Simulated scan of single mutants.
Amino acid sequence: MTQEFVLETRGLTKEFRGFTAVDDVNLKVREGHIHALIGPNGAGKTTVFNLLTKFLPPTRGEILYRGKPITGMRANDIARLGLVRSFQISAVFAHMTALENVRVALQRRLGTSFHFWKSERSLEPLNDQALALLDQVGLKDYADVLTVEMPYGRKRALEVATTLALDPAVMLLDEPTQGMGAEDVDRIVELIRRVSEGRTVLMVEHNLSVVSRLCDRITVLARGSILAEGDYAAVSTDPRVREAYMGSEAGETEEAGA
């Protein structure tokens, strides 16, 4: 039944002047699962994310959230429904503190982001909630640190905190461990596992070690189409998946997960 799936696509297709980036993708994300989109470079993973969150309009196909069509909705309305995404590049404010970044996200949820005439003191009631979110992602000691001065892995954790501030039902994480060393990767894996409790996560991820440790289900894309689906054991032994990765990032990913 459709109600089993919090997020679903039917025949989702995106064409750019004759080039098909996403081709007839039928994705089904179960409520409460951590679901990964993987595939070689250029497979269409981030384009799928952009379609789901309305940063791009589809050429054809349908997107459903909790069984209801959302294909024609705007990006901000999608976020209000509870579908909130992060990006490959950290999207926090570099010259604001960690606390201020989370507070801005809380303001957005309250609908007061553009109340410029109010003094900063009016935002103080949000401080306790912002500190609680920072504590949740292991950043309470960084509350007063400017984001530009924070290590890269901590910035990505801060981005998770700002995403949580919007109270998402579905978190869409675009390559959350990209560019990280092993210690930061381990920290982010535990963070995602912790914050996924009570919500659904859909993530694009290159590091197969991360996927194997976190994900309930995996969808493999190749040339814009779904190549394989299943749990990690099934997908990692699928000859088609091995062939798709061969000569691309498969070796790099295995080394990253070693």
Rank of each mutant, 00 (worst) to 15 (best):
Q107A: 07
E249D: 14
V92D: 07
L139I: 10
E4C: 12
M203R: 00
I63V: 15
A157F: 06
A250M: 15
T13W: 02
K155Y: 04
E249F: 15
R30V: 08
P176E: 04
G198I: 10
I78S: 01
A228L: 01
N207V: 13
L158G: 14
I218Y: 07
Q107C: 04
G18I: 02
A143P: 10
N76E: 13
T200Q: 04
L52Q: 04
L146H: 14
Q107V: 08
R187L: 03
T97H: 09
A228E: 01
G224W: 05
L106H: 12
E190Q: 13
A256Q: 10
L158Y: 14
L64P: 09
A143G: 08
S196V: 12
V6W: 06
E205Q: 13
K28R: 09
L158Q: 14
M171L: 15
G61R: 03
F116M: 08
I89S: 04
V137H: 11
R109A: 12
R187S: 12
V48W: 03
L81G: 11
E255M: 13
F55Q: 08
P40E: 00
V25S: 00
A165F: 07
F87G: 02
L52S: 09
T47V: 12
L7T: 13
Q88N: 07
M1F: 04
E190C: 00
E252P: 02
A79C: 14
R156A: 06
P239S: 05
V201L: 02
E124A: 14
A182D: 11
K68H: 14
M171G: 12
K118F: 01
L221C: 05
L133V: 05
F114L: 04
M171R: 08
H115F: 09
L134I: 08
D174M: 05
R108W: 06
H33M: 00
G230H: 03
I218F: 06
E4G: 10
K140P: 07
A143L: 08
V145Q: 00
Q178I: 15
R193H: 04
V189K: 08
D167V: 14
L131A: 02
Y65E: 05
V6P: 11
R80D: 01
V29P: 07
R199F: 12
A244K: 00
E15A: 10
L146Q: 15
F16I: 13
D167A: 15
G251Q: 14
L81Y: 05
F49L: 07
L12H: 07
P151H: 06
K54H: 12
L99G: 12
P125C: 10
L139C: 09
E249K: 11
E124S: 11
D167K: 15
R193Q: 06
D231R: 09
T53P: 08
G42C: 05
E243D: 11
A105S: 13
S113D: 00
L56S: 01
